[in-house]
Amino acid sequence: MSFKKIFGILLAGVFVIGAEFSAVAGPKKLNVVASLPDLASLARAVGGDHINVSSVALGVQDPHYLEAKPSYEINLSKADLLIYNGLSLEIGWLPLLVQDSRNPRIISGAKGSLCASTALDRILEKPTGEVDRSMGDIHPEGNPHYLLDPRNGLKIAALIRDKLSELDPSNAGDYSKNYAQFETMMNEKIKQWESQAAALKGMKVITYHKEWEYFADWLGLNIAGNVEEKPGIPPGPQHKQWLIDKIKNDRIKIIIAANYDPSISTAERLASETGATLLILPAATGGEPGINDYPQLFDYIISKLLQAQGGGK
């Protein structure tokens, strides 16, 4: 058999299989891909049954360092809407995935490309001067871990409602209704979490990476230092000694690390040398079994913090 025949048969086969998969897709729903599981959870809450939602990153993965796996492009190539965190959090992998997805609907500037950070009116730790890599893995646009403040999640849910209504006006009423329900639920939960965490206000903590700044800002925790010497950079001996002195002198009881932070052993040694408690927490939906949506993430984090602080269960 000639090469041309083999090639022709192969190509025809692919078209047939491709057509089969297109045919079983069922009634048209908006395909939404979120870069992060928290954003997927917010989209699910607003979009309900009118959308198919998937997340590129898992809750146990560090969103700074994902690999641009071609398998991620399969969902992106069919997406009507891409929701991403922004502030350069996904800069190492998302641009490549979007380009190689061959999907003009979600490229930068297209209707189906939604940067969630545009919903925020306040971004923490935005550098005021020149930035360079001697400062570590610094984000020139500011700290990107804003999803750990549920009030920001609510703003993003409203942004998603507006975008879904624009892309799918026939279901705009349902998106508004879903959002209203989510807003009511979240406002109640936020009051409940703030009340539970009142005992944490002013408590000094050490965090591994700078991902807890928005969370601390919301509940009034005082982050006295980071295990990382600079963002993304492990501590040297001098910084470790500074941390030990700081923890002892300020009687800091808790060191917080996300469960995807690398070199947790460094934080463990710090805890054992100072008597502080190392609290390894999920930092995203799906970060631990049982955290199936965005509100459950805060239920989990706050309950663990209260247990560690000794103020509740």
Binding site: L11, V14, F15, I17, G18, F21, S22, P70, S71, E73, I74, S77, K78, D100, R102
Partner: peptide, 11 residues
């Protein structure tokens, strides 16, 4: 051309 298949297929 990326075939619309359940795995990554690029010709």
């Amino acid at each position: 051309w990326k075939g619309p298949l359940p795995w990554y297929f690029n010709l």
